[in-house]
Each structure stands twice: as structure tokens, then as C-alpha cells.
Amino acid sequence: MDKFSVLEGVAAPLKLVNVDTDMIIPKQYLKTIKRTGLGKGLFSEMRYNEDGSENPEFVLNQPAYRNAKVLVAGDNFGCGSSREHAPWALLDFGIRCVISTSFADIFYNNCFKNGILPIIVTQEELDKLFEDAERGANATLTVDLPTQEIRGPDGGKIHFEIDPFRKRCLLEGLDDIGLTLQKVASINSYETAKATERSWL
């Protein structure tokens, strides 16, 4: 998993509440267990018209937001089914941070396990971030995980809270496998001892 420290980039405003995981990545894209290639399906029902052409009204199709790294979204983002493909699709598109007033629990947890930073802010703070994001490519946000700050283009700062363990995992790029591998010496020692004690196994 890629490390997350300081992220600077364009933030795309998605002014929708209750964006569920089926909206993030529709069911027809769930046939794969690969984490790559899902970016093309991100928000596909809103990004594309029935004939497959791009919907120019959708935010991520607009020139200013095609390379967005941050998504500013409405309340209860990531609700619905527990599909891990949702954070995979966001990450494959290039989004490393999602900011909202609340997240569905499973989606929130899945983000951390895949190198995405989900940030919870107040409604007042979200409104300010929407204003910043609507400036397009002329204004970027800086998400600073070590200091737990979001810095806007006008110099404004928003402090956010994060669980210390999750913060450490993102900073060090540790997913569940990475955390386990940190204990590999102890695991090998245990296995060697058990093999000696129970040689018949």
C-alpha cells in the first residue's frame, strides 16, 4: 500500500448526499478481484450517457476535475453494500482523500485498508471546502496527514481528527498484510518452536 503523508491537488465537489457504493462502482464491475482498472467504472452511471459517451455535466468529466486527487462529498458517503471495489475504484481513478460530514462504517474502514484517507468535518467546514473546490483547477487543497490539517487556497486551515493507529498505518503504508509481516520474526519463532514440540504433526 502506498504511503500517505501530504497530498496536494485539485478537489472535486460532489454535492450529493447518501452516495452509496453502487453509485461509486456499479454491480457490473464487480466481476474482477483485481484492484486496477476500476477507475473507468467510477460513478459510471453518472459519468456516461446510455450510448457510452461522457456526460459533460458530471463533475469528473469537466476539464478542471479530470485529475482530481480529493473528493469533497455530501453526508453519509459510501453507504449501501460493503463492496471493497468502491475504494479500489476511487484509488484507481487517482483519488486519495474523500472529505465529508459522515461516512458509512464499512466504507470508512475499507478506505484506510486501501490507502485512502477519509476525513470527517463539520457542515460549516464542508461548505467552505465546497466553495474552495468549485474554483476548479485554479485552486488546490493540501491535505497534511502528519499535522492533521487541510489547507485551502486562501490560506485557511481546517484541523481534522484521526485514530492514531490508522494514522500510523497510512503514514507507513501498512495494510493488514503489511502489519502481519512486521511480526514475521515472532511468527517464524513460534512456528519453529511448535514444530519441535509437535514433531509428529
Results as ranks from 00 to 15, higher is better:
Asp51His: 08
Thr142Pro: 01
Lys27Ser: 10
Ser189Met: 14
Gln62Glu: 02
Thr36Trp: 09
Glu124Gln: 13
Glu8Asp: 10
Pro118Leu: 06
Asp75Ile: 03
Met23Tyr: 07
Ala12Ile: 01
Arg151Pro: 01
Leu7Phe: 01
Phe107Arg: 03
Cys79Leu: 13
Leu117Tyr: 01
Phe107Asn: 07
Gly156Asp: 07
Ser189Glu: 14
Lys3Gly: 01
Ser100Pro: 07
Gly37Asp: 11
Glu191Leu: 15
Leu129Met: 02
Pro56Cys: 05
Ser81Glu: 00
Ile158Asp: 00
Ile33Val: 12
Lys194Leu: 15
Met23Ser: 09
Lys157Glu: 13
Arg168Trp: 02
Ile99Asn: 05
Leu71His: 04
Glu197Leu: 13
Asp132Tyr: 09
Ile95His: 07
Phe58Met: 00
Thr122Lys: 08
Met1Phe: 13
Ile116Leu: 15
Lys183Asn: 11
Ala11Lys: 11
Phe112Leu: 05
Glu125Gln: 15
Ile120Ala: 00
Tyr29Gln: 10
Lys31Leu: 04
Met23Trp: 05
Ile33Cys: 00
Trp200Tyr: 14
Leu201Thr: 13
Gln123Ile: 08
Gly78Pro: 09
Arg83Trp: 00
Lys27Arg: 12
Asp51Met: 12
Val19Asn: 09
Gly156Phe: 10
Tyr190Gly: 09
Lys31His: 02
Asn109Lys: 13
Lys194Ile: 15
Phe107Pro: 02
Glu197Ala: 14
Thr196Gly: 07
